[in-house]
Design a protein around this nucleic acid. Structure first.
Lengths: 196, 196
DNA sequence: GCACAAAACTAACACTTATTAGTTTTTGAT
DNA sequence: ATCAAAAACTAATAAGTGTTAGTTTTGTGC
């Protein structure tokens, strides 16, 4: 009769969500079972339901937590008194950093959101669409102000987002290369496509 | 009692694989059921087994077909008498083109390979590792020959691959922007990060 | 130590899954 | 028209799913 214990960094719910993110990332949402999640916590599956509502709610928590972090960062960067290119670079760096630091959660938000239930799904997608639109506006403004070369704003933004979204392939090189150099190399590479 | 018919572009097996790619992409491998696949073909689920071995085999066919296409292209490009940067650009363009033309299959090979059975999985991953290694070698050679700026070869290649891997987010803009412009914009953007 | 709430347990349900067995229908060549 | 092969069907199986109900154990404040 093991027990799920709350830690300094979070309630019992948070501990379950964290492990769920790990499993959803590793196995995929549909392939990750509540029984396996329970086993990982040293408990029987039904016991989880003393702490959480449903499997779907776990996915929601993960996806919306990450979406909120990105959106908050975007809004904060928008207000900063720096050039457009710097703003974009800061956003790119935030994507890289978050992927390195909250690997499981960011991966799940990037790749498993399609298993959200109908209502959450449409909410999630409109948040994402808004995020993309704001980035595209930034690039357009940069072009108007002659700061960014005359690229296709939509395509550029989606290419950048595609690049940072798939960075889980770099996760295993984190130790070997170092987080700081990873962030610098990737950011430099992606920013170079913007400037004149 | 509908029937699966072979078309000009493929045998009955190929038709099933094509539809399976569509479903695996749309729903995810685990969430896509054989019953749904059968329904899409106007047939009952067990009838599929007159033409295919198993659900897993369908995934294998898709993943290895795409992997082979990429590897063949890489080996072909390696022999061409052009600069390193041009070789890399041609590879990038091939990725974009294949994603636009074989959307479902490429998506599945990029995102659903983790559901391959153990043996296929390790084969698939070593093919991918080889592909990455060859691209990294290209970049290193380009740097040595002073053709490519002094970037981190591994990071650069994985960033490029991450970018082209996630291009499904551009699929819905294919009509609106045009395939040619999409290919040009993305390739230009990604190549700019390489050249001095 | 007692009582109450929190959190674990077991048993079970209602579904869905891929796949097999066995049978019937359809197709195509003679 | 006949006969064999191809391809469909129905029925069923065994395994796995998330989740609920009901019960027992554990932890906590008095």
């Amino acid at each position: 009769m093991a027990k799920i214990k709350a830690t300094a960094n979070g309630s019992r719910q948070d501990v379950i969500i964290k492990k769920a993110a790990f499993l959803f990332r590793k196995k995929g949402f549909r392939a990750a079972s509540m029984r396996e999640l329970a086993e990982n916590m040293g408990v029987e599956a039904p016991s989880l339901y003393n702490h959480i509502g449903s499997k779907g709610e776990l996915l929601q928590s993960i996806c919306f937590k990450i979406a909120a972090l990105f959106m908050k960062q975007l809004e904060e960067v928008e207000t900063r008194q720096v050039s457009i290119v710097e703003k974009l670079e800061q956003l790119i760096r935030f994507h890289i950093r978050l992927m390195l630091q909250l690997y499981d959660e960011v991966y799940v938000a990037n790749h498993e959101w399609k298993y959200l239930d109908e209502i959450s799904l449409s909410q999630f997608l409109s948040q994402r669409k808004l995020y993309e639109a704001k980035m595209i506006q930034l690039v357009k403004k940069g072009i108007r102000q002659n700061e960014i070369k005359n690229i296709h704003p939509q395509v550029a933004v989606l290419t950048i987002l595609s690049a940072v979204k798939g960075l889980e392939i770099l996760q295993k090189h984190k130790k070997e290369i170092g987080e700081a150099e990873l962030e610098n190399s990737i950011a430099e590479y992606l920013v170079k496509g913007l400037i004149k």
